[in-house]
Design a protein around this nucleic acid. Structure first.
Lengths: 337, 337
DNA sequence: CATTGTCATGCAACCGGTTGCACATCAAGG
DNA sequence: CCTTGATGTGCAACCGGTTGCATGACAATG
């Protein structure tokens, strides 16, 4: 019974309780969970049934102490509230859960020092870590990876397992799409300077637009948010661009807002393409954007990590997830100049 | 030394090693870290020095097993990707971290069975739990709370500590705002049937609109998502309402999309009000919405929980966080009929 | 019928700490 | 000089599991 102040008084059941109730030894109960093949099937069933009714669940901490396996992994992201990450986090959690692992979540606030601190704090109590869009330098990453298996998301460090959401195909398609609509002058509104994803986008766009003989002007959303995107609009209009490629959907929405404030209609006067596809299903107007399989990235990263933890994996892992353009309502024919 | 494949192999020193090297008992070493006041100062110094040279660090897992203090709390939400939760999750994580606690994250997929499973699984390895928008019934919640301190968010169970983002004030303001604009017939597009937040909104709206002598028709977004919201539009138009109050911002965006598809202009022909204020800073068009202090809810829940864990808290905790209307671009004067 | 092997289970040690209690030492008080 | 109390350490049990080894029961084999 709970005491009036809500502090718990009921004990969490342990193997000892089950063992006593059933008149078997603790080892038997333990084995019912870890090595059921060693027991008579009916014994296993008996134990599991009892565990069920008592609400017993093996204590990972205790297990960790004797086996050295914690059954916990850490996931560290730069900003939980950035809409790119929640689907990734969810997928990671669900996938880990499926393999009986728990997820410790950390938010580094885009801050390398904070990220390093979290990793150090988590390391002793986890079997491995997934670092999404890490802001640490290669050396620091390698150092942390010496203590526990580490899988990177959207960070390409040779020799470390990594999963990349590759925007290249998507941007190629986007630029082809815009070329077809008659656009000749593009603008790219870039994101965080150091980020792998921004590098990758710049390179991809630069390469693709030359294929179509288009002009490209590059801007920087500072910071890479709604407001940052909005602030670039004046410069974009001055550049004469008729189509904007944004670092991500958040920046794209900022650009949309800025354009509207300036009386520029989308898509009649200006086309806008986002990246990530994180808002499509939840906001209006439907944004033409590049879909980046971010949930899948989380899932794969966890799979790779758990393979590593179990000693199953081999070789240099570099998963590249391709992307594709999704045309919705924010792109249209280039305006007649 | 790390083995060639990068897996960590270095042996970690333990109290036993230090004890043997120093010719003292393990208890003495332990006490040098936990209760140095019980030891002769020079003994403490000797132990710490040895620990230093050996690179010893107390094993948290082992400590957790004997003390029952894990330094970990669990946070379970119905859907990590629902934009209401990420700010809450982040705030919770940051606040926990500040007090040296880690956060285990769980996603119940809006499923009571899954939620119960996660709680049971987490319970042995955490010091307490925060359950956001729990889908469990009161009895099940009470049962779980018997094992570990539990703090609820947006679930009002007397006797259990709870933090509520109260939409009442916000909806009062919204309805007053709409009344002032000349609206006489409202529509409410409701959310998940069992949810506390939906109940609360229905009651608040029903009360407020009678104060202004307005008509109210209620609809149900099934499911409570963008698509669900969009699907209600036809019925809303048939009802003759000139203003829509939505369960949350996601549903509101769905309604916006549906209205546009039907050629209904916002706000000229129809006003729309969201709830949660999770998109305002990241999407366009700026939605008139009700701001619920969701990040604060996460922060407060963690504070209360950690107070409880430390035995600091007393009494019946019921934190109600008020809300307010933020007028942006989706509400306007009622159209002349 | 004795022997051997297999199977299911129990015993007890162990993982790395914490902690109640007992014990030894020593100085102060009677 | 004996008692008392304080002080500093050690012993051993405990947290909740896991696991190598031993044991007992029983069936198959010679």
């Amino acid at each position: 019974m709970a005491s009036p102040d809500g502090s718990p008084t009921a004990a969490v059941p342990t193997i000892s309780v089950i063992a006593k109730e059933l008149g078997v030894s603790r080892s038997t109960v333990s084995r019912a969970f870890t090595r059921p093949d060693l027991l008579k099937p009916e014994t296993v069933e008996k134990v599991l049934a009892k565990a069920q009714t008592l609400g017993y669940v093996p204590n990972k901490v205790a297990r960790a102490l004797s086996t050295g396996q914690n059954g916990v992994i850490a996931l560290i992201v730069p900003d939980i509230a950035n809409p790119f990450f929640p689907p990734l986090i969810r997928a990671a959690q669900v996938d880990a859960d499926r393999q009986d692992f728990c997820v410790l979540l950390g938010d580094s606030a885009e801050n390398p020092a904070q990220e390093s601190r979290l990793i150090t704090r988590f390391t002793p109590q986890v079997d491995g870590l997934v670092l999404a869009a890490s802001r640490l330098d290669d050396a620091a990453l390698a150092e942390h990876a010496r203590r526990r298996p580490v899988v990177l998301i959207n960070r390409d460090v040779p020799g470390m397992p990594r999963v990349l959401t590759d925007s290249h195909t998507g941007f190629m398609q986007a630029i082809a799409h815009l070329a077809e609509l008659g656009h000749e002058h593009l603008a790219y509104v870039g994101g965080p300077p150091g980020a792998w994803s921004d590098h990758q986008r710049r390179r991809g766009i630069a390469a693709a637009r030359t294929d179509h003989g288009m002009t490209l002007t590059t801007f920087q959303a500072e910071p890479a948010t709604y407001d940052g995107g909005k602030a670039t609009v004046e410069a974009i209009l001055a550049s004469g661009a008729t189509a904007v490629l944004a670092y991500d959907d958040v920046v794209a929405h900022g650009v949309l807002a800025g354009l509207t404030e300036h009386g520029v209609r989308v898509p009649e006067d200006m086309s806008v393409v986002g990246c990530d596809d994180v808002f499509a299903a939840t906001t209006y107007p439907p944004l033409t954007t590049i879909s980046l399989r971010c949930a899948e990235a989380g899932e794969i990263a966890v799979s790779v990590l758990l393979d590593l933890v179990a000693g199953r994996s081999v070789g240099d892992v570099r998963h590249s997830l391709d992307s594709h353009l999704i045309v919705r309502a924010t792109t249209g024919p280039a305006p007649r100049a």
